[in-house]
Lab assay of single mutants.
Amino acid sequence: MTYKLILNGKTLKGETTTEAVDAATAEKVFKQYANDNGVDGEWTYDDATKTFTVTE
């Protein structure tokens, strides 16, 4: 399945996607991606759209 991440960081905004077997796996990938890019904030997940959002 394809999962999407929306980044609403103070210095980085954008979107990315990943292929993962489940939401938990996608979340690990996205949290590492956000961490690597210096984005740390509040996370939400919408199962209907398979979209994670992180907002600083």
Rank of each mutant, 00 (worst) to 15 (best):
residue 1 M to D: 15
residue 1 M to G: 10
residue 1 M to T: 14
residue 1 M to H: 07
residue 1 M to Y: 10
residue 2 T to Q: 13
residue 2 T to V: 11
residue 2 T to G: 05
residue 3 Y to G: 00
residue 4 K to H: 10
residue 5 L to N: 00
residue 5 L to G: 01
residue 5 L to F: 06
residue 5 L to H: 00
residue 5 L to K: 00
residue 6 I to V: 11
residue 6 I to S: 04
residue 6 I to L: 09
residue 6 I to H: 06
residue 7 L to V: 10
residue 7 L to W: 14
residue 7 L to R: 02
residue 7 L to K: 02
residue 7 L to Q: 02
residue 8 N to T: 10
residue 8 N to D: 11
residue 8 N to W: 09
residue 8 N to E: 10
residue 9 G to W: 06
residue 9 G to M: 11
residue 9 G to P: 03
residue 10 K to E: 12
residue 10 K to L: 07
residue 10 K to Q: 13
residue 10 K to R: 10
residue 11 T to R: 06
residue 11 T to W: 14
residue 11 T to D: 15
residue 11 T to A: 08
residue 11 T to P: 04
residue 12 L to W: 13
residue 12 L to K: 05
residue 12 L to P: 03
residue 12 L to A: 09
residue 12 L to R: 04
residue 12 L to T: 14
residue 13 K to P: 05
residue 13 K to G: 06
residue 13 K to E: 07
residue 14 G to I: 11
residue 14 G to T: 14
residue 14 G to R: 13
residue 14 G to F: 15
residue 15 E to H: 07
residue 15 E to M: 05
residue 16 T to M: 13
residue 16 T to W: 15
residue 16 T to Q: 14
residue 16 T to G: 04
residue 17 T to V: 08
residue 17 T to F: 12
residue 17 T to M: 15
residue 17 T to N: 09
residue 17 T to R: 12
residue 17 T to K: 12
residue 18 T to G: 03
residue 18 T to Q: 07
residue 18 T to P: 01
residue 18 T to H: 07
residue 18 T to F: 12
residue 19 E to W: 10
residue 19 E to T: 14
residue 19 E to D: 11
residue 19 E to M: 15
residue 19 E to R: 14
residue 19 E to Q: 13
residue 19 E to V: 12
residue 19 E to F: 13
residue 19 E to C: 04
residue 20 A to I: 02
residue 20 A to E: 05
residue 20 A to G: 04
residue 21 V to M: 15
residue 21 V to A: 07
residue 21 V to K: 14
residue 21 V to F: 10
residue 22 D to P: 01
residue 22 D to L: 04
residue 22 D to E: 05
residue 22 D to M: 04
residue 22 D to G: 04
residue 23 A to I: 07
residue 23 A to W: 13
residue 23 A to F: 12
residue 23 A to E: 08
residue 23 A to G: 04
residue 25 T to N: 15
residue 25 T to Q: 13
residue 25 T to K: 09
residue 25 T to Y: 11
residue 26 A to W: 01
residue 26 A to R: 00
residue 26 A to Y: 00
residue 26 A to C: 02
residue 26 A to G: 02
residue 27 E to L: 14
residue 27 E to M: 12
residue 27 E to I: 11
residue 27 E to C: 05
residue 28 K to S: 10
residue 28 K to R: 12
residue 28 K to E: 13
residue 29 V to Y: 15
residue 29 V to I: 11
residue 29 V to T: 10
residue 29 V to M: 08
residue 29 V to W: 09
residue 30 F to Q: 00
residue 30 F to V: 02
residue 30 F to R: 00
residue 30 F to H: 01
residue 31 K to W: 11
residue 32 Q to W: 06
residue 32 Q to E: 14
residue 32 Q to I: 13
residue 33 Y to V: 10
residue 33 Y to P: 00
residue 34 A to N: 02
residue 34 A to D: 00
residue 34 A to R: 01
residue 34 A to C: 06
residue 35 N to T: 12
residue 35 N to E: 13
residue 35 N to C: 06
residue 36 D to K: 11
residue 36 D to V: 11
residue 36 D to H: 08
residue 36 D to L: 12
residue 36 D to P: 01
residue 37 N to E: 12
residue 37 N to S: 09
residue 38 G to V: 04
residue 38 G to A: 09
residue 38 G to K: 09
residue 39 V to E: 03
residue 39 V to Q: 04
residue 39 V to N: 03
residue 40 D to Y: 08
residue 41 G to L: 03
residue 41 G to R: 01
residue 42 E to S: 11
residue 42 E to P: 06
residue 42 E to F: 10
residue 42 E to T: 13
residue 42 E to I: 12
residue 42 E to R: 07
residue 43 W to V: 02
residue 43 W to Y: 03
residue 44 T to H: 12
residue 44 T to L: 11
residue 44 T to Q: 11
residue 44 T to G: 15
residue 45 Y to A: 01
residue 45 Y to R: 01
residue 45 Y to V: 02
residue 45 Y to Q: 01
residue 46 D to A: 04
residue 46 D to H: 10
residue 46 D to C: 05
residue 46 D to M: 05
residue 47 D to Q: 14
residue 47 D to P: 10
residue 47 D to S: 15
residue 47 D to K: 10
residue 47 D to W: 09
residue 47 D to R: 11
residue 47 D to T: 10
residue 48 A to P: 07
residue 48 A to L: 15
residue 48 A to F: 13
residue 48 A to C: 06
residue 48 A to Y: 10
residue 49 T to C: 04
residue 50 K to D: 02
residue 50 K to C: 05
residue 50 K to N: 15
residue 50 K to V: 03
residue 51 T to G: 02
residue 51 T to F: 02
residue 52 F to L: 01
residue 52 F to G: 00
residue 52 F to T: 00
residue 52 F to Q: 00
residue 53 T to P: 00
residue 53 T to C: 05
residue 53 T to Y: 09
residue 53 T to F: 07
residue 53 T to K: 06
residue 54 V to R: 01
residue 54 V to H: 02
residue 54 V to K: 01
residue 55 T to N: 12
residue 55 T to D: 08
residue 55 T to G: 05
residue 56 E to Q: 07
residue 56 E to T: 05
residue 56 E to G: 05
residue 56 E to P: 04
residue 56 E to I: 08
residue 56 E to F: 10
residue 56 E to N: 04
